[in-house]
Simulated scan of single mutants.
Amino acid sequence: MIPSSAFSLSMTLQCGQCFRFFEENGVFLGVANGRLLKIEQTDRFIRFFDMTQEEFQAVWANYFDCATDYDALHTLFSNDQTLCSAIEKTGGIRVLRQDGFETLISFLISQNNNIPRITKSINLLCERFGSRIAPDTFAFPDAKTLASASLSDFSGLSLGYRDRYLLDAAQKVSSGEIDLSKLYTCPIEEARQTLRTICGVGPKVAECVLLYGFARLSCVPMDTWMKKVMARYYQAGLPEEILPYAGIAQQYLFHYARCFDTF
């Protein structure tokens, strides 16, 4: 269990940064890092079911970014009035530290798509190519498995034209042409350009992958909502002091604009 303060489980898991969790009677069930997770939020704690302290520390503390001091970030962000308003509504969101390859494939699928269809496609992909970890639950497939598929193997997964994007990404990662491990630490422009050599990866997808899959917290995905936010409040750009954590600020602003503000 971890304290509930400055942590909204529902916002974190339903704000569009991940796609393999669903809620049932206040309890979230999902798969990440090849493991099944059952988790709920009470008034005081985030409760992890059927888990040892060792597993939490080894896997889930990092996944939920428990080492980052979000209270300190809220203090920093609150110097900006717009961010202060966003934090009041959405400050419980944490930016997850997800598997890099899964994040890459997920956001290739996300293009010109909606969350229900994205979720459906990812679940079908896992059922077809992933290993079974519970009776009706499958891990996300690795790059080698997807790279060995043909385009016809992706039929019926509701991918449309995105099937060739997935195959190209898997083949480049599996062959070593792209070394995803370097994206954690290489210069950020190099990381962006590396991802954009993959068919279908444009600026927005690259920013999403780097932020949600490689903890590059300065990255800011620019979708329709964020473009409206920037045009209305930040014509000169985000405040300089928050730029190292602009991806977290973006998540607050995006969710605030989408769910609580009007444009």
Rank of each mutant, 00 (worst) to 15 (best):
R20L: 08
F21A: 06
I2W: 14
E189I: 04
Y212K: 07
L211H: 06
D136S: 12
L29N: 15
D65S: 12
Y161P: 01
V220A: 00
L157C: 12
S155I: 10
F138G: 05
E189F: 07
D71A: 12
F260L: 01
F254H: 07
G200C: 03
C199I: 00
L125R: 07
R164W: 06
M226H: 07
V220D: 02
N33A: 12
A139H: 10
Y70G: 08
D179M: 14
I122F: 03
L96R: 04
L243K: 15
Q81C: 01
M230Y: 08
N62M: 13
V27I: 15
Q53G: 02
D65I: 02
A191N: 06
I198K: 08
V220N: 02
T137V: 10
G247K: 11
D153I: 06
E189G: 05
W60K: 09
Y165N: 10
Q14H: 14
I2M: 14
P239N: 11
L76V: 05
R94E: 03
Y245E: 15
V95S: 04
S5E: 15
N79D: 10
L166E: 02
Q251G: 07
A231W: 01
G213M: 04
F22M: 11
S175K: 14
K182T: 05
R97V: 02
L83R: 12
L238Y: 07
Q98T: 02
F260Y: 14
N113F: 08
C84T: 02
L253V: 06
L108I: 06
H74K: 14
Y233W: 15
F22I: 04
I115V: 14
E127M: 09
L210N: 05
S148F: 08
R216L: 05
G213E: 05
L211G: 07
D163M: 13
V31K: 12
Q81Y: 06
M222F: 05
E240A: 15
L13G: 06
I188D: 07
D99G: 07
A236V: 01
R192L: 09
R192P: 06
A215W: 06
L73Q: 03
L157G: 07
